[in-house]
Design a binder for these strands. Structure first.
Lengths: 135, 135
DNA sequence: ACAAACAAGACAAATTTAAACCTATTTATC
DNA sequence: GATAAATAGGTTTAAATTTGTCTTGTTTGT
């Protein structure tokens, strides 16, 4: 219940990894995947998602790699989730009306949507910086 | 991102359906699936989960069916989620240490666990009764 | 006895996720 | 300019999960 994908885990680890480096340090996918122990190719896909979402910036060519596009203070778990898994949609009807057979007569949708927003608010309130301090 | 399974949706609908009936009314899976428009066989599986979790009570034989085991006030979205999809585990390492390659050296697990608990608290704070009032 | 209904395991189909493969492009260095 | 390191991204394969169906059994009111 409520679990995130492995790709999300990879991406989150990578962002935390980059956040621990000097602000503008460029790190290769190879280095990250070796340090973390994940599939290099698959982590590369996650990094591409993060790049397209404006969370990471890529540097091509030799000595290339990735760095964070902005301060860890300004990147949230919600941002990473949206970048890799798309918008939060607790129920199918939230993703697209018509996806649920009884959307018209359903009386509890609106409350579930509220719940969805509250969950996302929790994720949006968790910055990468807050993940850096070990507790 | 963050989506629940179809089985969960079916189960949630069924619980809300039962909650709208008189307290001890027994309803068949057939009636519920026809009213709601879901696969009868599959909804039956969801009902079995709800029964095992002590959320619904089954009545066998002719005129049998299901009724809620307790007041809608005392059934939460978290209960239904646990009954159908199991415990909430945002990350693999929360489900079982050793499921993640870097659990030992991972510094942000604990914070993610906190986040997991907070999300579950939101679900646990949403009773079926609160889903009944249309807004 | 019969029919309606739940119980539950086994199976099959469909979908999603994870991973691998391959080709192209970019760019620093020699 | 050639080369090698790296990202870009599409295609395909493999694995896992979800969804749905089928079948058999049990319970119980009529």
């Amino acid at each position: 219940m409520l679990k995130v994908s492995r790709k999300f885990e990879y991406g989150l680890h990578a962002v935390v990894f980059l956040a621990r480096k000097e602000p503008q340090a460029v790190v290769t996918v190879k280095e990250m995947s070796q340090d973390i122990g994940f599939s290099q190719e698959f982590l590369a896909k996650a990094m591409q998602n993060l790049k397209r979402a404006g969370i990471a910036v890529s540097v091509q060519g030799v000595n290339g790699g990735y760095r964070l596009a902005r301060s860890p203070d300004d990147i949230t778990v919600s941002d990473i989730g949206r970048a890799i898994e798309g918008e939060p949609h607790l129920m199918r009807c939230s993703a697209e009306s018509g996806k649920c057979e009884i959307a018209e007569t359903c009386t509890h949708r609106s409350y579930m949507f509220t719940l969805e927003r509250r969950i996302d608010s929790l994720l949006a309130g968790t910055t990468v910086t807050s993940l850096l301090v070990s507790r």
